[in-house]
Write a protein that binds this DNA or RNA. Structure first.
Lengths: 328, 328
DNA sequence: CTGTTAGCGCATTCAT
DNA sequence: ATGAATGCGCTAACAG
């Protein structure tokens, strides 16, 4: 492998001079620069990143921890991150936990060892030990999707989004509205969205029956099962169901259609996430767009600012957009 | 930051000894080992990866170049890669081209500069300059999804899969079968799948009308448009349509349903890819599963074997599985 | 404007 | 079994 030393010898200058043209730093005569550049061109020399990092303590690598890469939300976020980071010469080091919360912690350590310049955590929970670890870390960390004290984050307006959607149902004349949520360990999706639903119902003096509110996990089948439970439970059936994700909504619709129920005439359905498929299923799903790519971009910006120790606004809550289609 | 030198001092041994316990290499007395381990424990010391890399020339990082992370195929591959690599202490450095073929080449260089130990290229084409560059690279590269001479790859059996699917239509009594394909720059999807379709048709003495064969790009709307062209073209209409991806098939179905055509009674549809949504749309889509995760795992295995310079079988063609559902 | 010098943190001979 | 010495490839004072 060709090194800076050899380039220096071939160009008949010192290593420092080569380094200077490489980094555009300090003074270097036009003559010397041309000579060096020519030699670099000829040899196809590329500087060693790890030697460089050893000196500068910067790797230009950002670690990204995510629960899965197989659903749209994290994929879009990573795309956004990638776009923004690439422009600044940063790369992404991927750490996929496959929904294993233990690994979230492990990766936080591992990425430190890997000496990344910063970390983006696509968060699914805000467990105290996780937040503790983030604060202890000597490198900047930005969370996406969850909020926590004294931590940088980019999050969505889950509470208002849930109220907006519930409000839409009410506006369309629905009074009996069901809810398919997820576990409360996920504060953003499990608590905030549910709270928005409850509060909006209450604000309109609408009752919520226990049977209408089901807990699911993050997959389509689980949405199906939850809808089934709501449908087969005793008592009054809701005329509308709010699922906290599009996939859950799709599962619910799948059940309803199978039972011969019409959407939205018999039961209206809405989700959150603006998944690509939501506009191709029948009926087209009413949902909320969260601007995931933008979340990624903003998180990257925050992180880079922090790395370059500019002043940063530590938190950011993104706006959302209601997409009214045919399922409500 | 605490370094090996400080650990040595605190443990009252030499740096070499610390290095030995760190890497389990050479002799070190039980006494010394314990002392060192204790100090490491106390200080929370972690060795600097880049200093280590500078010495060993190994980074334990694999670069992954992909066209997008927003569709299921690459996502699944990356998941498979991640699982296998993680077990061996390797990490993934992500390079997203966003379908820009120029960037494929750029990233190949960039990853070299980043001194990754190997590269996985989720390939969309086999342009000569791309293949040339791969061969020139001093680090091992495994392609996924495309085949080429003198390059390591893991690919799918596109040709046979296409014949199988076409054969299924024929078996169900269809004689007029349409085809929605993609550009031939993508050899695997654009050429092989089409060839399989043509050959199977010919083997049964079935004619193919020009209007039945449409070219699309990789998105749902394009499948819709292609189906529309087939439907609105002059001449005899096919009773079945083979789309080369599930998303294209979904687009085609979307058009057919909108036109009030029944699937599969009026027009049967099949795709390739076994996308998650394929089993939740109506009717459930007949498709082919390509084992993308396994492709990722196998590519990782190949790469690691190559890095550790064991002998490798340079190429691997994965098997596929027909999933018969309700759309045919 | 340029070269000399001195490490960055680690693994690896080579002596002892 | 251990330590001293060396250098991986690079950047950054500093002196000229």
């Amino acid at each position: 492998m060709v090194t800076i030393k050899e380039i220096a010898e071939m160009a008949q200058v010192s290593r420092s001079t080569v380094s200077r043209v490489l980094n555009d730093s300090g003074y270097v005569s036009e003559e010397a620069r041309e000579k060096v550049e020519q030699v670099i061109e000829e040899t196809g020399y590329v500087p060693s990143q790890y030697a460089k990092s050893l000196r500068t303590k910067r790797t230009k690598v950002i670690g990204v921890i995510l629960p899965t890469i197989q659903t749209e939300t994290p994929s879009r976020i990573v795309t956004g991150l990638g776009k923004e980071l690439e422009e600044h010469g940063y790369q992404i080091l991927l750490a996929n936990t496959n929904h294993d919360k233990e690994k979230e912690l492990e990766y936080l350590d591992l990425l430190k060892v890997r000496q990344v310049d910063g970390i983006v955590l696509i968060a699914t929970n805000t467990a105290p030990n996780l937040i503790e670890k983030i604060k202890e870390l000597p490198i900047p960390v930005v969370m996406i999707g969850q909020e926590a004290e004294n931590v940088m984050y980019v999050s969505y307006n889950d509470y208002d989004a849930a109220r907006t959607l519930t409000s839409l149902f009410i506006q369309k004349g629905h009074k009996k509205i069901g809810f398919i949520g997820v576990d409360e360990s996920d504060k953003a999706v499990g608590i905030l969205r549910k709270q928005g639903y409850y509060d909006e119902m209450q604000a309109h003096g609408l009752p919520v029956e226990e049977n209408w509110v089901q807990k699911a996990v993050f997959n389509i089948d689980s949405g199906y099962d939850a809808m089934k439970k709501i449908h087969t439970s005793e008592g009054v059936l809701p005329s509308a169901v709010f699922a906290v994700t599009d996939r859950l909504a799709i599962g619910a619709m799948s059940y309803l259609k199978q039972e011969g129920l019409r959407i939205p005439e018999d039961v209206a359905v809405a989700g959150i996430g603006a998944s690509e498929i939501s506009q191709y299923i029948h009926p087209k799903l009413t949902t909320i767009d969260y601007q995931n790519e933008k979340a990624g971009e903003e998180a990257a910006k925050q992180l880079l600012s922090c790395i370059h120790s500019k002043k940063v606004k530590e938190k950011m809550i993104l706006d959302y957009r209601l997409i009214e289609r045919d399922s409500v």
